[in-house]
Design a protein around this nucleic acid. Structure first.
Lengths: 208, 208
DNA sequence: AGCTTTCGCTACGACTCGTAGCGTAATGCC
DNA sequence: GGCATTACGCTACGAGTCGTAGCGAAAGCT
């Protein structure tokens, strides 16, 4: 998770149980206190470890919360539901369900806000949270292209731009709906959103 | 801006110059320090007012930053560019330009993150930031419908849902592109995004 | 055994928070 | 002009958090 220590094979190993306890305690604290009132001392107490242990593993609150929130997105999957529309609706509903949880609401936006002035944190978020979501987009798109539902794009650069666009639209819309508008991304909304997105993507690639 | 004092016509009036100085100092501090290292004492010093004056007008850091960031969105306009596509591209580029500024990056997401546990703050954001953006969507949509570029929706409830959807897609995509993906929403991106959005909206209203 | 690293614990200076108290300044009302 | 009322600047304060240093004990490897 944090810095690799390949050359250190001697000495007492770090407790793996402590890691999971700390991350779980962080999520509990996020639910009860929210980002701003969460303190590392409190998390250490909840996890049953010393505060110094926590500081030995994480540089600060943003890094800790980033890792704690990242685990929430482990459950994201993309089973083949037979059509691109069904695939999109399924994964968006999963994503919305995660974002509806209070620990995700409180933590995710705050960490992203911090990352605007911390390149290392931005990279950490990209690797541990964004990467996994992006992979679902890639997989779903490839599946749709093999079904013939989306046009193939031979140019890799153009293809990358399209994937980036899709990802920002999907993730951005769900996040904005949930956290800014403060309304649930329920089945009705997801259905309407998917219809708009599909129409937008399946259109011709003409450049105006 | 904050609490109305209609019944109080006696006593020394609050300095309007102090308000503008404080909000400007808040934006300066956001640029130099970012959200997490911004302190109200520092803002007061920058603005040339006493710390107690600041606390008499704002309840805390989130409310202050909310008002300071809200003024950034005052410059949003929606001139008639002749077509829905041109209108969307224009306003999205304006929105992206504002979000690219460091004071907006640092402050906006942090305030939204705080609002997930503070209903009063959420309402303040809605009234002072979201409301103005939403009005542009309503105006642009009405203009497009009068041009015949978008189908009219007689049902007000359905119409409200559509406007909400458009708003979350547009604002969410731009915010996600700028703050999460960390890439600029330049003309190329805005052009591609507009094409997808227009195709999605102009399609038939069939329910699958 | 001996070596190495981690862990729990305590204590610490530095900083920020938000408020109370007081004297002064600026307005409206009589 | 005088008076009541409110805002302002300033100082000081207790409370809380931060991140670190130092120590002895525990848990691995060779």
């Amino acid at each position: 998770m944090q810095s690799r220590t390949p050359a250190s094979r001697t000495g007492r190993p770090r407790s793996a149980a402590a890691d999971t306890a700390i991350l779980a305690a962080t999520r509990d604290a996020l639910v009860e206190l929210g980002w701003s009132k969460l303190t590392l001392g409190d998390v250490a107490t909840r996890a049953g470890v010393a505060k110094t242990t926590l500081y030995r593993r994480w540089a600060g609150k943003p890094e800790l919360v980033c890792d704690a929130v990242a685990e929430l997105f482990d459950e994201l999957e993309l089973p083949d539901r037979g059509s691109l529309a069904a695939d999109i609706e399924g994964v968006v509903l999963q994503f919305a369900a995660i974002l509806a949880r209070p620990e995700a609401k409180s933590g995710l936006m705050a960490v992203v806000a911090e990352s605007t002035r911390d390149d290392a944190l931005r990279e950490r978020i990209r690797a541990s949270i964004v990467e996994r979501q992006m992979r679902l987009v890639l997989e779903g798109r490839a599946r749709a292209q093999s079904r013939g539902e989306l046009p193939a794009e031979p140019d890799p650069a153009e293809s990358a731009r399209t994937v980036d666009l899709i990802f920002d639209v999907v993730a951005g819309a769900v996040v904005h709906r949930t956290l800014v508008s403060g309304k649930p991304a329920d089945e009705d909304w997801v259905h309407s959103f998917t219809r708009v997105l599909l129409l937008g993507l399946s259109g011709s690639s003409e450049q105006t």
